[in-house]
Design a protein around this nucleic acid. Sequence first.
RNA 1: UGACCUAUAGUGUAAUGGUAGCACAACAGAUUCUGACUCUGUUUGUCUAGGUUCGAAUCCUGGUAGGUCAACCA
Length: 565
Amino acid sequence: MTSSNPAIPEPSNFIENIIVSDLQSGKRTTVHTRFPPEPNGYLHIGHAKSICLNFGIAKRFAGVGGQCNLRFDDTNPAKEDQEYVDSIQEDVHWLGFDWDDRCFYASDYYDKCYEFAIQLIQKGKAYVCELTGDQVSEYRGTPTAPGKPSPWRDRSVEENLELFAKMTRGEVEEGRMFLRAKIDMASPNMNLRDPAIYRIKKAEHHRTGAKWVVYPMYDYAHPLGDWMEGITHSICTLEFEVHRPLYDWVLEALELPHRPQQIEFARLNLTYTVMSKRMLLELVQNKIVMGWDDPRMPTISGLRRRGYTPSSIRSFAEKIGVAKADSVVDINLLYFCIREELNAVAPRRMGVLDPLKVVIANWPADKVDMIEADNNPEDPTMGKRMIPFGREIWIERDDFMEVPVKKYFRLAPGAEVRLKHAYYITCKEVVKDAQGNVVELRCEYDPESRGGGSPDGRKVKGTLHWVSVAHALEAEVRLFDHLFSFENLSDVPEGHDYKEFYNPNSLVRKQAKLEPSVKELKPFDRIQFLRHGYFCVDSRDSKDGAPVFNRIVELKDSWAKEQKK
RNA sequence: UGACCUAUAGUGUAAUGGUAGCACAACAGAUUCUGACUCUGUUUGUCUAGGUUCGAAUCCUGGUAGGUCAACCA
C-alpha cells in the first residue's frame, strides 16, 4: 500500500499500518503519541522498546506534525518518587529522544479528573461504594461467574455527590469508601464490573504534597490524560488489552470528542534476563548488585554504565520489531548490535587478562623499541599510536600450549608466531616451577620481522597480543555474565523461584596487564581489547587512578566454540 | 466452566487474496597482522482439520497450543 501523500511514510509495523490508514481515511490529520511511565522505578530495556516506538513514530510522522509527549503516570503516591522522575528523564534523553516542552504529569490533571468524576456522578454513571476489600472481590464474581451489584449501587446523585465531597475533604478513613464506575456487574470482562475510579490515599504525593487525599485510578486517569493531551494513538502493552473497553467507556461516558485510540503490543522479553520492576528493586535492595546502574542490570542506566551506546539500543529496538504475539528475543541480538557499532568505531588496544611471561633471549636487556600500531584497521583515519616493546613481555596464558592440539596455531615449543605489530618470535624453552607449572617462556625474535612482516615472505598463522612487562599498566577489568543462569523464565522448574538461579559468576574481576596508552582513557570511552571484546571505562569506579574496565561484550570466538565441541 | 488476544525457519519479524522475504543464530568455504571483521554459499518455516476462491500465511468454521483478566497497582 503506497501512500500518495509524501508526508506519510511507508508503514513498518502493524501500529504504523493503523496510523497510515487513519491518516489516509481522514480519521486523523496528525499523529500524537506519548511515553507514560509510572515513576516507581528505573527504566529498563523493555521501556527502551516503548520509547523507541513512541518517539520513533512521532519522528517518522513528523511530516504530518507527529509529536510524542513524556507523561508521568503518577496516580499512586505510595509508590512514586522524584528520584525516579529524574532518572527517567535522564534515560530518555540519553537514548536520544526529546519531548521539548511536553513533559506532563497525570497529577497535572487531578483537578480536571475530579470535575469529570463529578460529571459521571451527575450522569448516574458513578457511585460511592462502602464495601470492604473482601466484600468487593466477593461481589465481583469470577471470570466464569457473574458478579452481583453492590448494595450502594443505587444511591441518589445527591448522596453520591455529598459522600464524594466528604472523601475529598479527608473526612473518610482510607479504605472505607471509594468511587466506582457504574457499568455492568455481569460483564464477561472483569474490568467492566464496576471498576474503582477514585480511592482514598492519605499519602504525601511527590508533586502535589498533601493537597489531595483522593486519587484517580490508572484506568480512569489514563484515557483522560491522553484526551487532554490530544493523543491520537495511545500505545501500551498487551496486558492492557482487556482494559481497552474501559478506556473507551470513560471517554464515551463523558461524551468527549476526538477520542484517542489505544493500541497494544507485546512487551519485550529477553533470554537470560528478568525484567520485572519488582525483581530489579529486590536485586538492588538485597545488594545482589551494586545498584540500579550495575552493569549487569537490564536497566537503561545499567546498560549505559556497562558501555552500550544509545544508537546500539535504538538499532536493537528497530531490529526486534513490534507485534502482538508474545515472544522472547535472543540476547545475542543485542550483543550483535553493540558489536556491529563498536567494530567500526572503537579503538583497538592490547591487554592481557591472564598473563604469562615471555623473555626474548636475543633482545638486549635495556633496549626499548617503540612500535607503531594502527588504532583501528576498519578505519585508517583513526590514526596510529606508539607501543613500547622490550625484552620481557606478557602474553595470554592460553596463547601457549606445551602440547598443541591439532589446528592450534598459537605459541608452542619450537613454534613461530607473530607478536601483533611487532616481531616474529619462536619458542625455544619452557620454564617451569617445582609443581611443573609453566611460569615463563624463553623465545627468540627475528630482527628482520619488525612491524610484523617478514622479508622472505614466510607465513605465520598465529598472531598474539602482548604487553611490555616494564611498561604495563595494571588495572581492574570486569567480565560479566548473565545474572541468572536460566535461558528463559519459563525454564524455571515448577515450585522453584528464579531467585534460586542467581549466577555466582555473573561478575569476575581480573587484574590485567594493559598497554600504557589506556591511561589516557576517560569514563565512557569504549575500546576493543584485541581478542577479548569491547570494553568501556567505568563511569563510577577507578582504582588508584587507573581506569576500571567493564566488558560490554566478547568478540565472537570460533576457535573457542570449536574446542568446546 | 467465561471473555479477550495470539500462532510464519532455532529466535525475532515482513508479506494487507497473487513468486513466503529480511535480520540474528547455525553450517560450509574464501580472506585475514584480531581464530574478530568482511565476502560467498547452504540448511531450516506458514500450528491442525475442513471451507470459500481461478488462487489462502492472509477470509470463514472447528480443533490444538500459548498469553491476559478476579488490586481501592500501573
